[in-house]
Amino acid sequence: MFSKLLHKQGRWLVLAVPYVWLLLFFLVPFLIVFKISLSSPELAMPPYSDMFLHEGSTVQIVLNFDNYLALFRDSLYLNSYLQSLEMAAFSTLICLAIGYPLAWVIAHSDPKLRNILLMLVVLPSWTSSLLRIYAWMNILNTNGPFNDVLLALGLISEPLELLHTNTAVYIGIVYNYLPFMVLPLYSAIMKLDHTLIEAAADLGARPLKVITSVVLPLTKSGIIAGSMLVFIPAVGEFMIPELLGGPDNLLIGRVLWQEFFNNRDWPLASAVATTMLLLLVLPMLLFQRSQNEELKGEKK
């Protein structure tokens, strides 16, 4: 009787931990940001108006939806949302193109070597990503090692201008997020039943056909998980484009910074952030669904 109760309680506790975590570190901060997005800017500390106006015994709630309308009045916001989505989407595709063969090779190598290779994928994350991006600034510099090597090899006659270009931003994002693509792909490929590939080949499927109708569908969950893990943080990425990118890229992270810092307009900045979050909820829901499907599949 007692152990049954403990069992029930324990389950409740285990479930409660992630929910409390989400509530405290996701929902509450989001509600604060959402509340600020409905106020108007003021020269005060903090620099926005109060939502609740007290007058004697009446409390008025003032909601200002103009910040959301303002996002449509200037094409700047829409353009930078689109540019951010585009950059994130291409980065995800490049990560997938590099990450899939990489994960395949790791998964099919000798078990001893496999652990070392996996280690090598994760190892760079042991230093701060800010430091690693600074290292890239150095590498890609006009007078930096990358150009030195190319010049020494005679491949180019004048140093390439890489730093402060979109190419540099792509290099930075792909480099930074590649482990997040490789790890879920690796685990999906490890689960792949190789007899199925053999069976397909025995039944006369050409290699391309084997890949498109056996391998890829069976590792779909890894592809989706990896892509989401790269795409979602890449949309809001601020540090990498700021350090490696040129001034002509106008990503949403930069626009947010400007509203917040240059314009001291916390309400509008909050509206930009809330809208970005809503844009990201859609892919996250898709991710959730594919995860659920995978769980169902395993239960069978």
Binding site: L76, P247, D248, N249, L250, V255, Q258, N262
Partner: peptide, 8 residues
């Protein structure tokens, strides 16, 4: 300034 920075 955003126009100047981005060149657009």
């Amino acid at each position: 300034w955003t126009r100047v920075r981005s060149g657009r």
